[in-house]
Every structure is written in C-alpha cells, then in structure tokens.
C-alpha cells in the first residue's frame, strides 16, 4: 500500500513551481533534493493538503488506493515532521503526545500509549516536563512520537534534521527512519544534505534549479 503522486504540479501566480510523478512503497524512503526556492516545502504542503489558497495544485495524491485530492489535511492521515519540533509550549510533553492520540481510547490506554512512546525514544518518565526545557534532540524525538501516535499512513519529512548538529543529527535520523520502517510507512524526505539521502538508502528525486528572479 503505497503513496503515489500522479502528475502532481504546483502553480503559483501562473508560474509552475514543480511537477513530479512518484510511487513510494511501504517502508521506502524517497529523497527529494533541490536548491532553496525549488518548492520543496510547497511539495510537502501540497501532499499534506496544507497549501495556501493562492497556490494551485494539479494532479493527484493517492494513498493506499484512496484519492486524497480535495481532502482536508485532517482527513488525509499523512504525518509531517517540520524543520522545527513545534512542540506546543502551553502543553506538557505528555499533553503534546495526547493531542495526537485517536479518540475513543480509555484513560488507561491513552496513558499507556504515551508512556510507551516516551520509553521508545529514551524519555521515559518525562511526560510532565515543560517542552521548552528539553534539549534539541529530545524535542525532535518527542515530535517524532507525536506524529506517529496519530497513526499516519505515510510520513513527510520537511528537513527535520537540519537544525541539529552533526552527531545528534545522525542519531535522530536513525530513530526516525527506524520507526518509519518498523511501521512500513511510505516516507518522502525533503533535504539539501547529501548525507540524509545516503542514510535514507532509497531513490533520489532531484528538483529543478530555482528559477531566476
């Protein structure tokens, strides 16, 4: 059950930003590379359904055979990790994770899933912490778990490692890839770092150079 981009195109004010076709199999990581201004973040927004009104999206996004065209983001079941962890500052670490859990779980079940998620990234017992006092690497791991607790069927990564320094970057990257592969999620990674692409070990799609201004 894969993520398919069929003739996906982005047009902003009459100018075509990009156009691409791709099939991403479960557990596979497609790396999209390109200079800044090539529309990498817009590509993620288009697949997740987050494009602003001014941008026109053409073609289709198909996930597990469901055509997602026109679906609002909250119905797509596509998880996104942004460049920043974006942990909500008014919630504790545990509340940030709880926000992602599906409805209909019992209190005990919710508690158990949050504990389990924190433990799997080495943060057991931190559910009451203020997210602001976590280190950069810890925040990135909580953000990963928050995205996965929503049980997405595909994962989009918008340069999520670029703010971390080299050693940390490697370990967070490994954690993200490990969890995504364990859940057999199709993954689309946007980056301008070669090392990310090599670590992903999947196909690489090069976006065209930035248009001249």
């Amino acid at each position: 059950m894969s993520l398919v981009l069929e003739d996906l195109s982005l047009v902003l004010e009459g100018r075509q930003l990009l156009r691409m076709d791709a099939v991403i199999a479960p557990g596979q990581i497609l790396t999209v590379m390109g200079p800044s201004g090539a529309g990498k973040s817009s590509l993620i927004a288009a697949i997740a359904g987050l494009t602003p009104e001014a941008m026109k999206v053409g073609g289709r996004v198909v996930l597990e055979g469901r055509d997602l065209t026109g679906h609002p983001p909250q119905m797509r079941r596509i998880g996104v990790l942004f460049q920043d962890a974006l942990l909500f500052p008014h919630f504790s670490v545990g509340q940030n994770l709880g926000l992602a859990l599906p409805a209909g779980l019992s209190r005990a079940e919710r508690r158990a899933r949050i504990d389990e998620a924190l433990e799997s990234v080495g943060l057991a017992g931190r559910e009451r912490a203020d997210p602001t006092i976590l280190s950069g690497g810890e925040r990135a791991r909580v953000a990963l778990m928050r995205t996965l607790l929503a049980e997405p069927r595909a994962l989009l990564l918008d340069e999520p490692f670029s703010r971390l320094d080299a050693p940390l970057r490697r370990s967070v990257r490994e954690a993200v890839f490990h969890h995504a592969k364990a859940r057999r999620l199709p993954v689309l990674l946007v980056t301008h770092d070669r090392a990310d692409a090599e670590a992903a070990g999947g196909p690489v799609h090069q976006l065209g150079s930035a248009p001249d201004f």
């Binding site: 997740a48 974006l86 926000l99 995205t147």
Partner: peptide, 21 residues
C-alpha cells in the same frame, strides 16, 4: 507561526480544534 495549526491538522484535528487547542 501557522505551521503550529497545520501540524495539529495533520495530527487529525479539525480546524476548530486546531484553533481552540
């Protein structure tokens, strides 16, 4: 930063919930 509300949407929350939560 509207990515905060975008993120809440991708977690499956409605626009109204993203606004109030």
């Amino acid at each position: 930063d509207r990515r905060n509300t975008d993120l809440a949407l991708t977690l499956g929350r409605s626009p109204a919930a993203a606004f109030t939560l």
